[in-house]
Simulated scan of single mutants.
Amino acid sequence: MSSMQIGIFTVGDVTTDPTNGSTPTEHERIKATVEIAKKAEEVGLDVFATGEHHNPPFVPSSPTTTLAYIGAQTEKIILSTSTTLITTNDPVKIAEDYATLQHLVDGRMDLMLGRGNTAPVYPWFGKDISKAVELTIENYQLLQKLWSEPVVNWEGKFRTPLQGYTSTPAPLDGVAPFVWHGTIRTPEVAELAAFYGDGYFANNIFWPKEHYIRLINFYRQRYAHYGHGTPEQAIVGLGGQFFMRKNSQDAVNEFRPYFDNAPVYGHGPSMEDFTEQTPLTVGSPQQVLERTLAFADYFGDYQRQLFLVDHAGLPLKTVLEQLDLLGEILPTMRAEFDARRPADVPDAPTHAARVAARDAALTEEVAV
């Protein structure tokens, strides 16, 4: 595997195709998610990630179920989340569910924690949205303990205390799943990621690059402050999105109705303005390649690049064609990213590498 992980993420929206008025059923959308993940592995991508939503028009309310099912039908691709809701899920359940997934797929998984962007989800799970940041911090501290300590005694503000509690199963090989912290705007999340030496994922979809440059630089500085390495060695992931065809004008013409009607950004700025101001690229494979390689110029060398490709009502056939086109530029994208990466910038985290690092550290301790 390359030192850069390149993959896709889904938010699992069920959206009407504006070109023909057809809407997939929930069943079709869930099955399509599996096909997309399998195709991602087939074209050589490193990561497939699913969101977590508990409301229509989204289907991924149970990420670990979906990822385990995909895991059984794939061999190499890393399975992740584009959000695991740290605020409204019980950390005890997160610890169990994701450790189980880790065992089932032999370590080829990690997860991205986030608060989600749906306000009503808080009361559905008995939580108060005004406490979102406090919940994030307390729940994550508990999750860390559950994965790193065999017996946990714990008391906090938001859930009943734990006395002599053991989370089962324990993480595979005694190494907890790697955690990314996903964010669109919250400095506290960058601080949390930096404190624990975790990954930081900047969604990088809706906002101009200047916004994310500030957040990523803040995370890098705090990562160094907490003694995990230099700012350049912090573990950064980025989102992105594209629509491509061999001929760039064909891409523009085909994607425009989807863009104009998309629930997330339709009926707002023009596609031209949006592609200029955000990382959305609509054009030829070469344009997508050049635009993506430029991300490192703004954000520094980074470890994971995930693209959103299956949203806004795009039919499954079209999404699979997008993945074929991405597969064609993938070797060049990898080679270019690797060529520019300085030797002291770490590779993207994998379970095997983290187990090896832990064992090496233990051997060193014994030697001392």
Score class of each variant (00 low, 15 high):
residue 1 M to F: 03
residue 5 Q to T: 01
residue 6 I to D: 02
residue 11 V to K: 02
residue 11 V to A: 05
residue 11 V to Y: 07
residue 13 D to V: 00
residue 21 G to A: 12
residue 22 S to K: 13
residue 29 R to P: 02
residue 35 E to K: 00
residue 35 E to D: 13
residue 36 I to D: 01
residue 48 F to D: 04
residue 51 G to I: 02
residue 53 H to R: 06
residue 56 P to D: 06
residue 58 F to P: 00
residue 60 P to G: 03
residue 61 S to Y: 14
residue 64 T to W: 09
residue 65 T to S: 13
residue 65 T to I: 07
residue 68 A to C: 08
residue 69 Y to A: 11
residue 71 G to V: 13
residue 76 K to G: 12
residue 78 I to P: 00
residue 84 T to P: 03
residue 90 D to A: 12
residue 91 P to V: 05
residue 101 L to F: 05
residue 108 R to G: 04
residue 108 R to T: 07
residue 109 M to D: 01
residue 110 D to A: 10
residue 114 G to E: 03
residue 114 G to K: 10
residue 115 R to Y: 00
residue 117 N to K: 05
residue 121 V to A: 13
residue 124 W to K: 12
residue 124 W to Y: 10
residue 124 W to D: 11
residue 125 F to Y: 15
residue 125 F to H: 13
residue 125 F to P: 01
residue 131 K to T: 12
residue 143 L to I: 04
residue 144 Q to E: 08
residue 147 W to M: 13
residue 150 P to L: 04
residue 174 G to M: 09
residue 176 A to G: 01
residue 176 A to W: 07
residue 182 G to A: 14
residue 183 T to Q: 10
residue 189 V to I: 15
residue 192 L to W: 09
residue 195 F to L: 08
residue 197 G to I: 03
residue 202 A to E: 01
residue 208 P to N: 10
residue 210 E to P: 00
residue 214 R to L: 09
residue 222 R to Q: 14
residue 232 E to W: 03
residue 236 V to D: 08
residue 237 G to L: 04
residue 241 Q to L: 04
residue 251 A to E: 01
residue 257 P to L: 07
residue 279 P to A: 02
residue 282 V to S: 11
residue 285 P to T: 15
residue 291 R to N: 11
residue 294 A to N: 14
residue 295 F to C: 02
residue 296 A to E: 10
residue 299 F to G: 01
residue 300 G to R: 05
residue 307 F to S: 12
residue 308 L to P: 00
residue 309 V to W: 07
residue 313 G to N: 02
residue 320 L to P: 06
residue 327 G to A: 10
residue 330 L to T: 07
residue 334 R to D: 09
residue 337 F to N: 11
residue 338 D to S: 14
residue 338 D to W: 12
residue 338 D to T: 08
residue 340 R to I: 00
residue 345 V to M: 09
residue 351 H to E: 10
residue 352 A to C: 00
residue 365 E to Y: 09
residue 365 E to H: 14
residue 368 V to Q: 09
